[in-house]
């Protein structure tokens, strides 16, 4: 998760409570919003005696996380009024244990309320497919139009060297549901977004085999990667024609 969001947001409050750990942060230019939840089910055990916000610089956290082995068991601990976050990595055979503390920071961040939205279009597709579309179209243009209709969803762009588009139609993969593409539509939508941000969101592709895109005209796009016990959501403000 940290790897997926560290290029978008830098200083974040990890809000800990009985439900687990949540994070909400805007990127510096206030175009995108990251919303992450890891429920208690992601941890074993999980204990939180008092609601607490752990202000962490993600670059610092990455430096420490890179010291962990892929299969290590990670324990995160913070005291009641902490100055630091304690991280312990234990190898699966328990023959190696490493321990780090990183300094916490006071982050004065405004929390935005995200209204419950009935989206006009909800599209599920393989995350690798979405990553490829964003990467391919970003070679041509800064922006992509996403047009969802009953016939399918069309990603199109135009730039200095020409234009391009990719159209996806609903498709069911009976062996692996994450490789299916589905489109639920209540009304057609057509919105334009910055590809730079979408390419950035796709760094989360390794977290989930499929990604959900939720669109309504004139509101931010929701790009959601579901995780076993939580989610990573990105909201992106649309571009509006003059």
């Amino acid at each position: 998760v940290v790897e997926a969001i560290k290029d978008l947001v830098q200083d974040c409050n990890f809000d800990c409570n009985d439900d687990g750990i949540q994070l909400q942060a805007m990127d510096n230019s206030h175009v995108a919003l990251v919303s992450m939840k890891l429920s208690t089910g992601a941890f074993s055990p999980f204990r939180c005696d008092r609601n607490i916000a752990l202000g962490i610089n993600l670059n610092s956290l990455m430096k420490v996380l890179r010291a962990a082995g892929n299969d290590d068991i990670l324990t995160l601990k913070a005291e009641d009024q902490p100055d630091s976050l304690n991280l312990v990595f234990e190898s699966p055979g328990q023959d190696r244990m490493s321990e780090y503390d990183i300094k916490l920071m006071d982050i004065d961040q405004e929390h935005l309320g995200i209204p419950e939205t009935e989206y006009a279009a909800t599209i599920s597709l393989p995350s690798a497919e979405f990553q490829r579309i964003c990467r391919d179209l970003s070679a041509l243009s800064e922006s992509v139009s996403i047009e969802a209709s009953k016939d399918g969803v069309k990603f199109s762009c135009s730039g200095d060297i020409g234009n391009g588009s990719v159209t996806l139609r609903p498709h069911t993969n009976v062996e692996d549901e994450s490789k299916s593409t589905s489109i639920a539509l209540t009304e057609p939508v057509n919105l334009t977004f910055s590809l730079k941000y979408l390419v950035n969101f796709c760094k989360a592709s390794s977290l989930s085999g499929s990604v959900q895109l939720c669109l309504s005209n004139e509101v931010p796009l929701l790009v959601e990667f579901k995780m076993g016990a939580g989610y990573l959501r990105f909201y992106l403000a649309p571009k509006i024609g003059d």
């Binding site: 919003l33 403000a237 571009k239 003059d242």
Partner: peptide, 14 residues
């Protein structure tokens, strides 16, 4: 040309 909207123009602080 199109202009980029800000996310905070859609979601209000709580």
């Amino acid at each position: 040309m199109s202009s980029q909207r800000s996310i905070s123009s859609f979601f209000a602080p709580v």
